[in-house]
């Protein structure tokens, strides 16, 4: 009897385990969902599953929201005394600085001079390398020539284009304001925040939509990213106002991204439809 009970428990457990495994293999993995986020139709089967499975769809939307929130993180203030600390470090390094600057200046100047002539470049590179070793030996501490050289910005660093201008964050903060201009309609009642390069595009993330306002009527929901209004890209809140002004009262299109899909609507009338 005892063994019988144990067997039954085991069987039940095995059954449950099988079921659990089965349902897990049917759904998309987190990584698959993440892939679909960047390349929506990359894997047709996965995409089809996403369209038919409510659970995975909900998960996809969560991923999408995280992705958007990441691209909209605000810049941070360094500690207030940062400059004082930097100055102190500069003071303590003064004698060393001159030595290293000499070495690098020479190195950089040389490599620029020979740019374009490959053969010569190799020869001089070997020479520069040798001088580098020498300079490295001359420098005190573990931070010699090589450590410094790997940091040389132009060499390894990627090109980051359309990076938000450096003093803009404060401007961004100030933009995080609801549009409440009388008579602007269309976007009235929504709160926006600029996002950079979301799915390769800049746009305005909808933070909140007040029910029964123009923005709600337009069909905007929080989490949408408005990328275009009146065929003009919308990167900053003033772009929206400009689009409205440019329309001079005639209907204009508004385009936004929702969960990886582009939606278009004509304001003040027209259907919401995902763009194929």
């Amino acid at each position: 009897m005892m063994t019988c009970a144990i067997k039954r428990v085991c069987r039940n457990f095995g059954e449950r385990y099988r079921q659990m495994n089965q349902s897990a293999s049917e759904h998309l993995t987190a990584e698959q969902i993440s892939e679909l986020l960047d390349e929506p139709r990359k894997d047709k089967e996965d995409w089809l599953h996403l369209e038919t499975c409510e659970e995975c769809r909900a998960e996809f939307e969560r991923f999408s929201r995280i992705r958007m929130a990441l691209s909209a993180l605000p810049d941070l203030d360094p500690p207030a005394d940062e400059w004082t600390a930097i100055e102190a470090k500069l003071d303590s390094k003064e004698p060393r600085i001159n030595q290293s600057v000499l070495g690098f200046g020479w190195h950089a100047g040389r490599s620029r001079l020979i740019f374009g002539s490959r053969q010569l470049a190799v020869t001089v590179a070997v020479f520069v390398f040798a001088v580098g070793v020498f300079a490295g030996l001359q420098l005190p501490g573990p931070i010699g020539f090589f450590a410094e050289n790997t940091l040389q910005p132009g060499l390894t660093a990627p090109v980051v284009q359309d990076k938000i201008a450096l003093n803009e964050p404060t401007e961004l903060e100030s933009q995080r304001a609801p549009i409440q201009q009388a008579g602007t309609s269309a976007f009235e009642g929504a709160e926006f925040e600029p996002v950079r390069r979301y799915e390769g595009r800049s746009g305005l993330l909808v933070l909140r939509v007040t029910p029964r306002t123009a923005a709600a009527k337009l069909g905007l929901r929080s989490g949408d990213v408005v990328v275009d209004a009146g065929n003009l890209p919308t990167r900053q809140v003033p772009d929206l106002i400009q689009a409205i002004n440019a329309s001079q009262g005639s209907p204009f299109s508004v385009r936004w991204i929702r969960d990886g899909r582009e939606m278009v609507k004509l304001w003040p009338s027209g259907e919401i439809r995902p763009k194929e």
Binding site: L76, W83, L166
Partner: peptide, 21 residues
Amino acid sequence: RSAMGELHELHARRVYTAVRR
């Protein structure tokens, strides 16, 4: 030094933010 300080003020947020993240 004062010019350095001004450059720092202009770009401090971006530098700190990138590093912090």
